[in-house]
Design a protein around this nucleic acid. Structure first.
Lengths: 231, 231
DNA sequence: TGAATAGTGTCTATAAGACAATATCGG
DNA sequence: CCGATATTGTCTTATAGACACTATTCA
């Protein structure tokens, strides 16, 4: 059997959640969009393979990279039995769209434009699982900062939540909650004027890795949503 | 490369969290304890392979079986490059310890006796990850019922939390919270006398798959615990 | 000054946790 | 009745969310 890694690379650009996709130049699924990925080398750890792919596609060192899940349904790749280990990475808005990419057809695509389906292989499902992982991890980890540059304002951090969760959050309560949560963010002392209005204090990510208590997104209508038993 | 599945099978017996282990009869790690597992067949989905192993080891149909993570560090198996997809299953206390097992040396072992280490391959780490997954999923899913028989009392459900979390929970507040959470448990109408005292009402698992709000274990001292970035 | 954004204070509804009180069994 | 466990109720405190208010900038 063959082992590959596939990457769900997410960022926020222009107020939209975007995902890095590659336009396939060869069959199968020629011309279709796919998640970036590649083969795991013979003597390479899975995490290292994912980090290497990330470097090759974006020219970036991993900031947050975590294993998502593994997909191995027979027939998912028409060329033969391929098991893929999917990884999720969250990136700040990059200066150049895809710096240093070795894939000619790489592009950031708004998730909303892609969510309807049409990706190669089983990448629609992998992408959906990655989005859901990101959404839920914002609740109980300080991961939202991974979408931000090293120094950011509370309003920018709030924008991450609003974009990923597709909700509107009260700026004042959010400010109190985030600055009050132990180890979530640390003031740098600096300030910045992002738009009009009073300058905002700058923060960097704090040392916490878990939020107690979590920042909860509003309850999701019915309590039966989100089944995640055996796939 | 070779693909295997390994199972972290957890149950609660005698007030202890226990894990199903197999004593290895052949090298490598001959004589050591290991997680049950086996090869993924050429035309078999990963989830199906895990379910098949579960049946072979316990004679049971899966009640709760979920993918845990995938481990593929070169050298983790001295025989060659083997990538293993680990699964987590939660089982009620079984009548016969390991009914229908095809592995002669299978046994339930208290997690506390095994947590110190000594398992074959990288199974110490896989087991630890499985335990942590179970602990955290009790918070925001109704999964604790997977440790119980089809009908159970609230006190038994509370015992699951107390055992897995190693905490003591106020029986009265727990009762109110669990019976009040929408879709967590449903009264069957029956009652049962488990020990001395007033008979307890029997419940079965409800339709909810997520708890809103979650049942939180007490905050874990420092906020830096629980890192789970790239491994 | 006025518009705009940042940040603080206050109030209220809700939930969590402590714990009293009542219910129902076996002996 | 007594001891034990189940279940309900009450009280206190903490937190979430709504929203008034103040602060600081640019135009």
């Amino acid at each position: 059997m063959t082992i590959t890694v596939d990457l769900v690379l997410l960022t926020i650009r222009g107020g939209q959640l975007q995902v890095l996709l590659i336009r396939r130049g060869i069959p199968p699924f020629e011309g279709a969009w796919a998640l970036p990925g590649g083969f795991v080398l013979d003597d390479e750890d899975l995490d290292d393979a994912a980090a290497r792919e990330l470097r090759e596609e974006t020219g970036l060192e991993p900031r947050h990279l975590e294993q998502l899940a593994t997909y191995g349904t027979p027939g998912r790749d028409p060329r033969g039995r391929v098991v893929t280990v999917a990884y999720l990475a969250l990136l700040p808005d990059l200066p150049s769209p895809v710096a240093g990419s070795d894939a000619a057809g790489a592009a950031w695509r708004p998730y909303d434009d892609v969510a309807a389906g049409g990706l190669a292989f089983d990448h629609d499902r992998i992408l959906r699982d990655g989005i859901e992982r990101a959404r839920s991890k914002l609740e109980y980890t300080p991961l939202a900062a991974a979408f931000c540059p090293p120094e950011f304002t509370i309003a920018e951090l709030r924008g991450v939540y609003e974009t990923v969760w597709r909700t509107r959050i009260d700026a004042r309560n959010f400010h109190r909650k985030v600055t009050g949560a132990d180890g979530f963010v640390e003031a740098t002392g600096g300030t910045a004027i992002r738009d009009r209005g009073r300058p905002a204090a700058l923060f960097r990510r704090g040392p916490a890795t878990l939020l107690h208590p979590p920042l909860m997104r509003p309850a999701v209508g019915n309590p039966l949503a989100g089944a995640d038993d055996i796939r």
